[in-house]
Write a protein that binds this DNA or RNA. Structure first.
Lengths: 150, 150
DNA sequence: CGGCATCCACACGGATACTG
DNA sequence: CAGTATCCGTGTGGATGCCG
């Protein structure tokens, strides 16, 4: 009978791994201890860099500051709206900085912060892993149907 | 005029460290070279393990087979529907296996495959990174409003 | 127990137009 | 150039019920 599991915890004090468990009382009812009180670290991390395009954006900034439209150009498939949205989010989280250059016409530069760079390691790993994936199992990026508006 | 992007192409031949560049021709028009091959790997990877709860599920299977309901219990916050859905997806992608045990009542065991394990590496990295994040910037998991139905 | 079916509220995100 | 505003189809995913 399976009644003992380990899974992710938020407290990293003892690091190693506090073990979350599913226990069974005499009556057979189960309770979880130290479950993912909050969404797991995994989930929480995903909320930060797992947004659509978020990873790509961050990734594109790794080689230096990039201007808005260039960024949009690089990430083919993402609308300006999305780029803006995600950039704002990343900015609010301190992963990138936004700097308006005093030129005409205006130009805005986005740059990854030191903090943002700490995420690149993981992204690199993800990239390597992804590239080893058989193409068939990648869920096709479906084209949304047009809104029908002129 | 937007008419030339290379993105999400699945050719992974040259990969290595292709730098995406935005070039400008004499007339000031810009073109992108080697745009998304690399970054899109990020996006593609996200499509596979970036789904809601997907990472958590995989993560929770790392220590051994787990039964459906126990899995659901562990991942507090996810509905059975989601768990099922994601499990099916993971199964179709060969990251987990599903095995119906011959017991009464039925019990079903999910187990991570060797292939699935290859993803644990960066999930671990993600976990470490996430745990270092200040709690404030984690987008709260908003509670959906009830459907109003009885 | 381990689901599937249904219903439905949103949130997401593309398209488009407009602005300084 | 670098957005903002708006409109709206569509996907996502929680809630609930039923079933073998």
């Amino acid at each position: 009978m399976i009644n003992q599991y380990t899974f992710c915890n938020l407290k990293t004090e003892g690091i190693a791994a506090m073990k979350a468990r599913v226990d069974q009382d005499p009556k057979g009812r189960k309770t979880v201890h130290d479950a993912c009180d909050t969404p797991c670290a995994i989930e929480r991390g995903m909320r930060v860099i797992g947004g659509k395009w978020t990873g790509s954006i961050l990734w594109h900034l790794k080689d230096g500051p990039v201007r808005f439209n260039d960024l949009a150009r690089m990430i083919g498939g993402a609308s300006k709206k999305m780029i803006t949205e995600r950039l704002r989010q990343l900015q609010a989280q301190g992963l990138v900085t936004r700097q308006v250059m005093d030129t005409a016409p205006v130009s805005v530069q986005y740059e990854i912060t030191e903090f943002g760079r700490t995420a690149l390691g993981f992204l690199e790993e993800l990239r390597l892993w992804s590239e080893s994936l058989p193409a068939e199992l990648i869920p096709a990026q479906e084209a949304r149907r047009s809104t029908g508006r002129a």
